[in-house]
């Protein structure tokens, strides 16, 4: 089964067919979603009615019944909410990830092994549970405080702060792992050299260690942004009146699908592809 072991011809062709089928299976749903964003029909299904950009640019006020993505206030504001949430999640989880990476890679202390396992915990907790537990804790606390003292802690009610908290809870673990992996390969002698040459620890950190970590920090930031943007399971439990895009799309989908959803999906794929490409090129 390796190159040097002879294989029969039918085995090779069968294997080839399997690979082909596999990659068709991977690509098909995405290709179909993308193609139907341009179908000139009110439903994302066959038959093909011709090419149109209506699902991006049509304005119901001007031209009848179709509302394209760029005139759909509901979707646009959901998109903005998602960007806002993803931005804060990225900032917080990457900052925490840097600190955690230094803590676990550079400092020796008792109980480190145990704390490392605790740090991994958010990865083995299903996203729904993570959302539910944060809802129970913070929203329950807000209820109690309101009941006992009459103070309204709106920050802890379902809404964007809780969504950000829920996503930071597990995305921080991932960013920590990415940044720690890079820090592990860092040669501490470089930092010692900086210290010997008269730099203070702070200066050494900013001029030697941080530049070395930069690719991992960019990678972690791209990952955090995408994970936050695409997250549904944790978000849906914590969202209030401002719904992020995935939740808004889910609600639309339950009402029935129109090609506007395909248009949004294609836009999202394009943006993630660009982001992924930018990170790959950097590293």
């Amino acid at each position: 089964m390796i190159r040097s072991v002879p294989r029969s011809r039918w085995f090779i062709s069968l294997y080839g067919l399997y690979l082909l089928a596999f990659f068709i299976y991977l690509a098909l749903p995405l290709v179909v979603t993308a193609v139907f964003a341009f179908n000139d029909s009110n439903f994302p299904s066959l038959p093909w009615q011709g090419f149109t950009l209506d699902w991006y640019f049509a304005d119901a006020a001007e031209s009848g019944n179709r509302t394209g993505l760029f005139h759909d206030q509901g979707l646009l504001s959901a998109l903005w909410v998602s960007v806002l949430v993803a931005f804060w999640v990225t900032v917080i989880s990457v900052a925490l990830g840097c600190v955690n990476a230094v803590l676990f890679e550079r400092i020796q202390f008792r109980g480190k092994e145990l704390l490392y396992l605790v740090m991994l915990l958010p990865l083995v907790i299903p996203g729904v549970i993570l959302g539910v537990s944060i809802l129970v804790f913070y929203s329950g606390m807000a209820n109690q405080v309101s009941l006992n003292w009459g103070i309204e802690l709106d920050l802890f009610r379902p809404g964007l702060p809780l969504v950000i908290a829920g996503q930071v809870a597990f995305i921080t673990t991932l960013s920590t792992l990415i940044i720690a992996a890079r820090l592990r390969k860092f040669d501490p002698q470089l930092e010692e050299a900086a210290l010997n040459l008269g730099a203070t620890p702070i200066v050494a950190w900013f001029t030697v260690t941080l530049p070395w970590l930069l690719p991992a920090i960019f990678g972690a930031a791209a990952m955090a942004f995408l994970m936050s943007f695409e997250n549904f399971n944790t978000t849906v439990m914590l969202t209030g009146s401002d719904t992020p895009l995935t939740v808004a799309l889910f609600n639309r989908l339950r009402e029935g699908s129109t090609p506007v959803l395909n248009a949004v999906a294609l836009l999202l794929m394009a943006v993630s592809a660009l982001l992924a490409m930018a990170t790959l090129r950097r590293s």
């Binding site: 690509a27 179909v32 994302p44 299904s45 695409e230 699908s257 959803l261 999202l268």
Partner: peptide, 27 residues
């Protein structure tokens, strides 16, 4: 890289793609 492509889309988009393929009026 081809194996990674589906993950440029979120779970919702991937599921939506399968719905378009498999439903009664689907492909």
């Amino acid at each position: 890289l081809a194996c990674l492509i589906p993950f440029w889309a979120s779970e919702l988009v991937r599921t939506y793609g399968w719905m378009i393929l498999l439903r009664e009026s689907g492909l």
